[in-house]
Design a protein around this nucleic acid. Structure first.
Ligand SMILES: [Mn+2]
Ligand SMILES: [Mn+2]
Ligand SMILES: [Mn+2]
Ligand SMILES: [Mn+2]
Lengths: 226, 226
DNA sequence: AGTGTATGTTAGTCTGGACTAAAATTATGC
DNA sequence: GCATAATTTTAGTCCAGACTAACATACACT
């Protein structure tokens, strides 16, 4: 059988929810895709039929080698598309995810390859998520949560959560994007607030924002090569 | 209701088959899309439901103003995508049509606008077909059939038929692409063969190829602006 | 260990978009 | 002008992918 766009979305969702070989539940995927649990059960069966996942009733599904390879290539497509949208077309970080979500199903391999080379084989999407290589191998990025920094420490924002559009818009607005240099001015004992210095301006952020950010070494931005 | 990819394909097919306000038949569209006549009848009804076409049983359908506007914007998407694939990504003329056929349904307006400006508002797709502007207005190109040239005349290839992949591959292979300069060396009285001179090399082409080519003033190629 | 709750599955339904075969209509040729 | 051919529509099916409501299972707490 052919892999449909819907199947692709489920595979990617499983891939992204699955921490090393763990089984993934119906409701997790249903939540992530905004779909009913019943629909997810049905899709788990179809995917199992195609030997893309191993599915056990009531206990969840996990990707087979075949499924994982495919999922990695899909995630690669998605993240390279995002990079292309930001770096070549200049579209905002807060807009590219839903766009890539549709485009990922329609971009032929040749186009993905060209994106990769034009962008000079990037290792992360614009949100800082790793891009699997052609063999599905993820680069290992050594990021740590913003919360782990002590007062006075300086760091570079490396990754941000991309689930919540409103949060994402806020982060972009404030300049809290990968590559931004920050310093922890003060960690408030109450409410887990943190005062940051961001290129001279000071900014107080709360738990929700703190949890959304990772810091670490971010690869130097490369200008697209055409 | 929402416009689905399938509806988009039908609208574009009608747009492209429809010569000024003519009604278009079920079988024409079915043939063009590789679909059964029955499916086309069903889709004509759905499109009529949405006021995108005016449909009269047994006599065919024609686009309404609404449908025509939408179709023009879809054709615009398709052709700009093709231009992008060839001019920016360097993909062959003989490969881009089926790629654009899938991508056209997934490219958001922002991306199309960026393509348009990067490509410097091109007036034709790489095959020489006109690109409607944002208001759906087609540029008027003054092309004529290759067959209309007399022996000795020189011209520039401006448009080629894109229906048949094999033919297209052959044309590209021979260098018979928009922009190519040709001279009619001889028109053979038998079998409608034509001997062409193409940058020094001579080439005999038959009726099928001749019919596939138009000549005329082709806009100077623009290098993508980034 | 038993029981209530959360989670997962089944059953039944819907919609879009395709198909084939049969029926209806229009076009063509004599 | 009428019989036959070609085209179009209808009727009946199928499949993917979604949904809700009802039922089944697993887990967590006493
Ligand atoms: Mn998607
Ligand atoms: Mn991303
Ligand atoms: Mn298409
Ligand atoms: Mn074209």
């Amino acid at each position: 059988m052919q892999i449909s766009p819907a199947m692709e979305d489920y595979l990617m969702a499983i891939y992204r929810s699955q921490t090393v070989a763990e089984r993934v539940s119906t409701s997790q995927i249903a939540r992530r895709l905004g779909v009913s649990a019943a629909s997810t059960t049905a899709m788990f069966k179809r995917l199992a039929e195609e030997a893309l996942v191993e599915y056990h009733e009531y206990t969840g599904a996990s990707l087979t080698a075949k499924g994982e390879g495919l999922a990695a290539s899909l995630v690669r497509r998605h993240r390279l598309a995002e990079r292309f949208l930001t770096d070549v077309l200049g579209i905002g970080l807060d807009q590219v995810d839903p766009m890539a979500d549709r485009m990922e199903h329609a971009l032929p391999p040749e186009v993905i390859d060209r994106f990769d080379s034009i962008l000079q084989e990037p290792h992360t999407c614009p949100h800082g998520q790793p891009i699997p290589d052609k063999d599905g191998v993820l680069p290992d990025l050594h990021y740590s949560p913003l919360a782990s920094l002590a007062a006075g420490e300086e760091a570079t924002i490396a990754r941000l959560e991309e689930g919540d559009p409103e949060l994402l818009r806020y982060l972009v607005e404030q300049g809290l994007v990968p590559g931004a240099r920050i310093r922890v001015v003060e960690k408030h004992p109450v409410d887990d607030l943190i005062t940051l210095d961001l290129g001279g301006t000071s900014l107080v952020v709360g738990q929700r924002v703190v949890a959304a950010l990772d810091v670490g070494d971010v690869p130097a931005p490369r200008t697209p090569r055409l």
